[in-house]
Design a protein around this nucleic acid. Sequence first.
DNA 1: ATATCCAAAATTGGCGCCAATTTATGATAA
DNA 2: TTATCATAAATTGGCGCCAATTTTGGATAT
Lengths: 210, 210
Amino acid sequence: MNKVKPREANNATAVDVTDLILHDIQTGVLAPGSWLKQIDLEQRYQCTRPEVRRALDRLAQRRLVEHVPNRGYHVFEPDGRQAAEVSEIRILLEAGVADKIAANTSEPDVEALRNLASRFDTLILEGTPIELYEANLAFHHKLLSLCGNQELVNLVTEIRQRTSSAPVSQWKTRARIEQSSREHHQMIDAVAAGDGAALKDAIARHIRQD
Amino acid sequence: MNKVKPREANNATAVDVTDLILHDIQTGVLAPGSWLKQIDLEQRYQCTRPEVRRALDRLAQRRLVEHVPNRGYHVFEPDGRQAAEVSEIRILLEAGVADKIAANTSEPDVEALRNLASRFDTLILEGTPIELYEANLAFHHKLLSLCGNQELVNLVTEIRQRTSSAPVSQWKTRARIEQSSREHHQMIDAVAAGDGAALKDAIARHIRQD
DNA sequence: ATATCCAAAATTGGCGCCAATTTATGATAA
DNA sequence: TTATCATAAATTGGCGCCAATTTTGGATAT
């Protein structure tokens, strides 16, 4: 006697509520400082109370939300000092592997980078800020992954989330966005030329200005 | 039946179970690869099931334990590749701030470093491996904190935990321990001389050999 | 009118029960 | 004897209820 399984009842919950909340923090839907009321979250994301609590605890561990016992959770507000410190860390890590990136990169990798950079360029005109943000992330992720150190890629991905709580609004002016675009192409040129020193310089400048 | 009236089980412990389990992983009491059965943990640490689950989830987020759904949690077994990658990251970060350490350090700081280093030396002969491990950690923490970047200190502390799952047994031979001791003093000398380049070199060698 | 205090509502957080899944055990057949 | 399968035990994991704490609102006294 076979058991009949209800098909529509338990849909694939492969995505964690943590990621949904995280995404809304990154895109600025949940603004820095705003109160994350548990009852609101369980309605908004259609999940149970324990799921909300686990997600909030995880995000608090990652320093994306701040927790005050018996008083709830708030979206973390980035400190000026912390932001500067994290930028320094990113420069040490990302510029530090510039030589390896320049050495390891093959022609198809350069091609892929050019595609990601021009996708960013396209979205400057035609895309939403969120799409632009994600295209930028994709470019940097691809570039960094060429260093061959997977742990470093994961770490940078993590600390990049940690401070820029509302990353969508981080490029304020059009001029700054276009400056970013130019720097992307400078990095690619340095990679293609195998010039690690030039790449290191370009990466450091790029991180500093953001 | 087993409902024994808890006399002192009701103590107000501000310490989280997470830290207790973490400590036992660091000290090698819970060996890499060993299965963390929930019922065992709640007896061992005299806490409730939800507390155990929250602690395990947090440690899984930090990559200190590995989680397989419906099959439980195991102490993470460090991969050779990962260990090498984390070492590279530590070199980039810790050696990267050598100049700042050498520049920022005052005379009392040097004094404190010498005390921590000689405490390490003393414990080589008289202390337990755990005490030695903690003295080493204290020295490196103090040295690194002189760079002035608090976020970087936190990050290094975190990733140092991440890979060396049984850090107590990381110094196998006496010769290696004494080599570490000599390198500690070399670092201090470089700091005292304000020689950032020498400090950078000493830090890189020190991390590579561990 | 203003400050203080008490009660009620709202919110957070802990805990135990039970379902789902996996693992161990033993019986049966080839 | 060995492999296969069914049943029982053990383990994980989800969910709802209720206690503890905080916040809100209003009544009372000065």
